[in-house]
Design a protein around this nucleic acid. Sequence first.
RNA 1: GGUCGAUUGGCUCAGUGGUAGAGCGUUCGCUUCACAUGCGAAAGGUCGCAGGUUCGAUCCCUGCAUCGACCACCA
Length: 761
Amino acid sequence: MDKVFDQKKYEEKIYSMWEKSGVFSPKINQKRKPFTVILPLPNANDPMHMGHALFTVEDIMVRYHRMLGDPTLWLPGGDHAGIETQYVFEKHLASEGKSRFDFDRKTLYKMIWDFCDKNKDLNKNQMKLLGFSMDWSRYHYSLEPRIVAKVLKTFKKLHDDGLVYRGERIVNYCTRCGTAFSDLEVVYKEQNSFLYYLDYGPVQIATTRPETIFADVAVAVNPKDKRYNNLVGKKATIPLINFKIPIITNENIDIKFGTGALKVTPAHDTLDYEIGVKNNLQIISIIEQTGRIKSDPRVPDEIQGLYVNKARQKTLELLEQNGKLVKKEPLTHSVGVCYKCSNVIEPMIIPQWFVKTKPLAAPAIAAVKKGKTKIFPKKRFEKLYFDWMENIIDWNISRQVVWGPRIPVWYCFNCNSQIQISFINKNKECVKGVYETLSQRYSFDEISGGLQSILAPKNASYQLDNKRCHKCGSDKLLQETDTFDTWFLSGQWPLTTLGIDVDNIKKSSEDFKYFYPTSVLDTLWDILFFWVGRMMMFGLYLTNEVPFRVVHIHARVVDQFGKKMSKSKGNVVDPIVMVDKYGADALRWALVAGVGPASDIAISDDKVKGARNFANKIWNISRFIDMKLKDAAVEDYKSIPEFSDKMKGVSPNDKKIVEKLNKIINLTSKYLESYKFGLASEKLYAFVWHDFADKYLESVKKRLETNDLVPLSVLRHVLFNTLKLLHPFIPFVTESIWQELKSQRKSPDIMLVASSWPSGK
RNA sequence: GGUCGAUUGGCUCAGUGGUAGAGCGUUCGCUUCACAUGCGAAAGGUCGCAGGUUCGAUCCCUGCAUCGACCACCA
């Protein structure tokens, strides 16, 4: 054995040995309960970051259970990550001076597909470098046909059950990404702006968005506001266009803000939308999806066609010229921006597909309350889970991006001639318009061949198959171009990857019947809502059974200053760089050792270096024992008696270390069962380094010179058991030693499986 | 505004109802034949503040302070 553990010499070899042996692929054994973990699928658009290295926690659980003898499945996967990937890809296109509007959707889809394929493979290799014992034979990608087919069936089932509807609700729309987002995907940023006081005839209103005044349909005041009592029911006048709008009341108006009078613009503000719906007000939309002001007769000519920001300036100029701008004062408020591109989110009314979530959330709440799924750490995260699930609103599952499965709904163009279309014609030009008009110049085939997107009116008729129109028999049908929210796919991940049959659960695959529900879902708390909640809802909806028994929330990796790692801050540490420098074991250990439940981990070179030293310590303990065994001229393990309490010549000192070993075996098992990985590793560290190496090993050196075989027997006993305890945490060094000491032990050949987890009786 | 978390030796952080722990750093001594990615020793904390429960609190409860995170609202 070398003087120091050279991980580069072993890691690759060891991993491929494991892989070839097939130990990562469990065999179904009806006599034993399986242990199943589904990997939180990394995005296929990006290499791994330090957060992914925390899958170490899952590997620890998985390896532990495998060693216990449980049929253990860790199922890996990759996520197409719809919007996020398209965003990354569009940046890539932009660097080549192109945009998504230059391509029809088929071409664009193919380009992104190829882009992701490369990254997917990169991801897989990186996970192997970290030693993750995933069953690669069961790897799944969210866009592979058999996964998508199941997802579409779920959509149909939801639709049949009346849980899907097409609705026109105010949605968060990013004009740059060209898609709507769920409320969870909007981030709020502080912005310095101005509050403008405008003259609306009998009242003054205060607004930060003067460009939307042309879409106003009312002025609202608080019913308790005495200043306006006599004006309620009368009319206010929109300046510049002199439209009369009613003055109404609403309890949500803050008396102290501005003048206490709010201009109500239902089409372009969330609160206003609610007020509009409640009071049956007209909803007038003046902003296009491109972010430009519409050519609407209500809008002054010079403002039409301007982008929102320009329109604001121009409107203010006009207001000032007309003496309608009373005053402006500075205001700091938060503005919703796109979580991907930071562009300001425009609340807009666009027809979208929604899932009714209340009926799905109720069982998901009940399951956690009944303890069918347990969340760790409980106190903190159960509350978070309930808060979200109890306040859930209908889920907008439409995304106006290309990268994802299209919603399986078809519109007949004969019946719905008002559908808006965007496509690339034969001359490679992007053409937009309403079908009724376009059909006079272009054939249906030319349109469908170069299709970019369609936008059907809210009440458009549709059908769930692409046969001839059920109503008129026409064959001019096109599928919805909205694609599914990524979480609609990943929310079904444990079901689809294990092989559920959505139509007939009893016909699901053997894997599904055996491995579902899964045992533990380990993730970061920040996708508790996006992912865990959705999986709970889908799981219970389709199977009446929770998708996992336990949700374990792991720690978050931050930089040495305690800040979240992000590309924009430039404080990202590449896990693979650390692996290269100090070894996979070192990084794994550094991420787990002594870390409290769901706390932050500050990762630094020093910490990983310390972990590397620990791995080396174990290596050298083994090297010492190996040498002593050979010094004693012992050819193989048979020459040294197996350790036993009753063997002759066992000293109190020997007994003491064995007692401590048994204690640490019990403790490690106990901690692993209760998800206390930090404590487990900390205690192991102290035992290995201080009790075993510094004290016991030093103390027997003299005895070893006297040809006393008892201490050798003890050393070997303690070493092999300790290696087993350490293996889930630091698999490479322990397995490397296991291989080096082949002649000094009985089978098994591979540490990972065949060696059973020790018992510390 | 609401919720949650943190506050422990110089730094980073574990932990427990019964007189404080680790790693790193620091100081001193070691080229000891497993390991200098090491060995031996040492210094260093009234466990944020104020109350309460308890025979006893760093740990439980209440309040406060500071920092951080999340959610909601922001016309």
